[in-house]
Simulated scan of single mutants.
Amino acid sequence: MTAALRPELPALLAEEQVKAALLEDLGRAGDVTTLATIGPDMTATAHMSVREAGVIAGLELARTAFRLIDPSIRFEALAADGDRVAPGTAIAQISGRARGVLSAERVGLNFLMHLSGIATYTAKFADEIAHTAAKVCCTRKTIPGLRALEKYAVRLGGGSNHRYGLDDAVLIKDNHIAVSGGVAGAIRAARAYCGHLVKVEVEVDGVAQLREALTAAPDVVLLDNMGPDLLREAVAINAGHWGLAAADYAADPRRTLLEASGNVKIETIRAIAETGVDYISTSKITMAAPTLDIGLDVSI
Rank of each mutant, 00 (worst) to 15 (best):
H131C: 13
G158S: 11
V101T: 02
Q93W: 00
A289M: 01
A21K: 09
V85M: 03
L222K: 05
I294D: 06
E233K: 11
Y121M: 08
I91V: 14
E128N: 05
P87V: 04
C138F: 00
A246C: 02
A169L: 02
A80G: 00
S95L: 05
L5D: 15
R67L: 03
H176M: 07
L244I: 11
D167C: 13
A148N: 04
A98W: 01
L257K: 13
E105D: 07
E15S: 08
R211F: 00
V101L: 13
E203H: 07
R232M: 11
T286R: 04
V277F: 05
S103Y: 04
L149W: 00
S160N: 10
E274D: 14
G262M: 05
A44N: 01
C138Y: 01
L244Y: 11
R140Q: 11
C138D: 15
I129T: 10
A271V: 10
D127T: 10
G27F: 10
R99F: 09
V55L: 03
S103I: 08
K141W: 07
C137W: 11
A36N: 11
R255D: 02
A217M: 07
G276A: 08
V154W: 05
R255S: 06
L9P: 00
G165M: 09
I280T: 02
D293G: 05
L222D: 04
G276W: 04
